[in-house]
Design a protein around this nucleic acid. Structure first.
Lengths: 371, 371
DNA sequence: TCGGCCTCTGAAATCGATTTCAGAAATATG
DNA sequence: CATATTTCTGAAATCGATTTCAGAGGCCGA
């Protein structure tokens, strides 16, 4: 029976499929048969339309849409070695600033036909390594990290997999990994200098530095310390409260700080969340902001501007970081020449949670007739 | 030259590789050769360890780690038809409640060896459809959506691709899509009834219902309206302010509401963000909460409890929703029998932003002597 | 000790798209 | 008009892991 060239139209599913998927999924060969061309041509129409004769191309195209054919990306990836996929590992999505960056990243990638794998490390380097492992197994074409401090295992893994990488929210990273972000230390230094100019001399700092991998907050803390040392007012250990990244810890940190140092006039937090917690606590214990105590944050989350008083903070261009990371990776994957790192500008946002210290301040005797 | 069985150890890369990747990537065959077994055995060690003799299994394992072999998931996916990948499309990540759900989802998936593709629709159904298209092309094994109102095109696409799907944050969805979430309408109804019991009779509602696809907020608004109708106090159109999901809109909404209805004593918001904006505005214009005005939210974001006064709201089990969605899909992919939908309990969290209306209020003379 | 059964391993086919290589058709050149 | 180019298309090899099928070897009972 040599007539089997064009098998009769048994396109209907054979009652029940043997392998998982019921409907046998339309493949490139089906399109080719309908259009009376070879699979190769269909593939070319899809991938290099310009080299196919226009009429033929249109004909094939029509059949493609007719059958609503979509290519199997697994097969495609297997042959081409490219998944058109990028991964990101963030410490947590609970922080608006990361969520914003991820969203911008995803949007930009999506425009270029890439899809984003997301993973979170919960600020745990071991978790980060595992997730990276898993992403690499998935054949991602690029990877976005957060922060500059990563174990050498992680760097080795990236190197071995030869995956383009960029880290974000910082201006430089260990191991020569390119970075896109801001200079965290310089930002808090400027902020501290601003407070110094206002006349403050009794400082406190609340920093979320408990996670070993959080070099952002560590850099921010260093900026504070350096500025104060330079001004001859070095911070004593008890003036630095270490916290994690929760609002509640901001509250307790402020309480502790004011217990140890009741005469503090300015508190610099490395995170808006902490600052907002501190402000909440200040209000609760009757400390007026900024009259008695100036408070600053970092990140400029949506809420910062809506606080009462509005929070003085540092605005981080999270969306721009996300977009920039996407562009960098897309270029890197394409093999374009690349900048080593991108330093983005932060912006000090002076609002009303800061002001000059009370000049009539006498060590303890703090009083305020409430409303 | 029949001795080519075991090719001499030219394991070093040949100076420069012809195809993209420099180092030729270690594959299953390399491991097999080193271990003196067949590729099939290595594959079995990886996928069905229990059917391989222990000593052999260990030996192979050693070589696998020695060569730090990772399997090519594209090839794996091609053969097996499974990508071990799940996708989610959220309206936005900027909302903490979605970020929390995504994080929980990702964590649970990760435990089971799945990876999560993330996409966001910006509350735009067309975008949602595009992103879904892209995810399906990627061969995802399951898809998570948000909310119950989806176009029929989207449902058709899912059906055609035969991808298990679940939608989240709602208790039921159009087109027979299974759902995991809470009964939004019932939650606000309860909340409204609570306020009625406190003695309120002049209500206002602020709802983020501008996005066509936001059926959550719409259901919440209906809950409010129904409860009030049942109480004989139906809401007039001007008592309902429609907003988007920003904090600033909460502010302006409250301003408008109090302009039109200065005697309002209770404002129910369909979102904490709106409620927090409303509270900020109330403070600014000198309206005491809850003495003069009770305000409620929805979601129980981290900040809600830290407000001054702490915000009465509805707690949504976002993490549980995320985990539940993961479990559902994992089972669905495995072919296990499944529940149609899962109704999760919400929790009314009574804090201090609500209280009885000022008794000095005249009209309906409902009285309650506060403390 | 031998056949039969069970356990474990290897050879080879397979998944679906891409791409090289070469040949057919169409066009330009002598 | 014949040959040299060029343009376009098809056949077939390929990517790497999985899995079926069958065979090799070990164990048991008789």
């Amino acid at each position: 029976m040599p007539l089997t060239e064009r098998p009769d139209p048994m396109d209907k599913k054979p009652t029940i499929a043997p392998k998982g998927r019921q409907q046998p999924r339309v493949k490139i060969e089906d399109v080719a048969r309908k259009a009376n061309v070879s699979p190769a041509t269909v593939s070319r129409v899809l991938n290099h339309p310009e080299i196919v004769r226009p009429e033929l191309r249109d004909k094939v195209m029509r059949h493609i849409t007719d059958l609503s054919y979509t290519r199997d990306s697994a097969a495609r990836a297997l042959k081409s070695g490219r998944m058109r996929t990028v991964g990101i590992i963030v410490p947590t999505l609970a922080l608006g600033i990361f969520a914003e960056g991820v969203e911008a990243l995803q949007n930009r990638l999506s425009e270029s036909g890439y899809t984003l794998f997301i993973a979170n490390s919960q600020y745990d380097q071991r978790r980060e390594l595992q997730e990276l492992q898993s992403l690499i197994e998935r054949g991602i074409d690029g990877i976005v990290l957060v922060g500059g401090s990563h174990g050498r295992e992680l760097r080795a893994l990236i190197e071995q997999a030869r995956v383009p990488v960029i880290t974000t929210y910082v201006s430089k990273a260990a191991g020569g990994i390119p970075a896109i972000g801001i200079d965290n230390e310089s930002a808090t230094r400027e902020m501290t200098e601003y407070l110094l100019r206002l006349g403050h001399v009794r400082f406190g700092a609340i920093a979320n530095v408990v996670a070993a991998s959080n070099d952002r907050s560590r850099a921010r803390l260093e900026g504070i310390q350096r500025a104060l040392s330079d001004a001859g007012l070095p911070l004593r250990p008890t003036q630095v409260i270490k916290a994690d990244y929760s609002l509640a810890q901001g509250r307790s940190a402020l309480r502790q700080l004011l217990t140890d140092h009741p005469d503090t006039t300015a508190v610099i937090c490395t995170t808006d969340t902490l600052a907002i917690g501190a402000m909440a606590e200040a209000r609760k214990i009757g400390v007026a902001v900024p009259a008695t105590l100036s408070i600053t944050g970092f990140d400029d989350v949506e809420l910062a501007a809506q606080m009462d008083p509005p929070l003085t903070t540092v605005s981080v261009p999270a969306a721009e970081i996300g977009r920039g990371a996407a562009d960098y990776l897309i270029n890197a994957i394409a093999g374009s020449p690349l900048p080593r790192s991108v330093l983005l500008p932060y912006r000090l946002v002076m609002r009303s949670s800061t002001g000059p210290p009370r000049s009539s301040e006498r060590p303890p005797r703090r009083r305020r007739s409430p409303g």
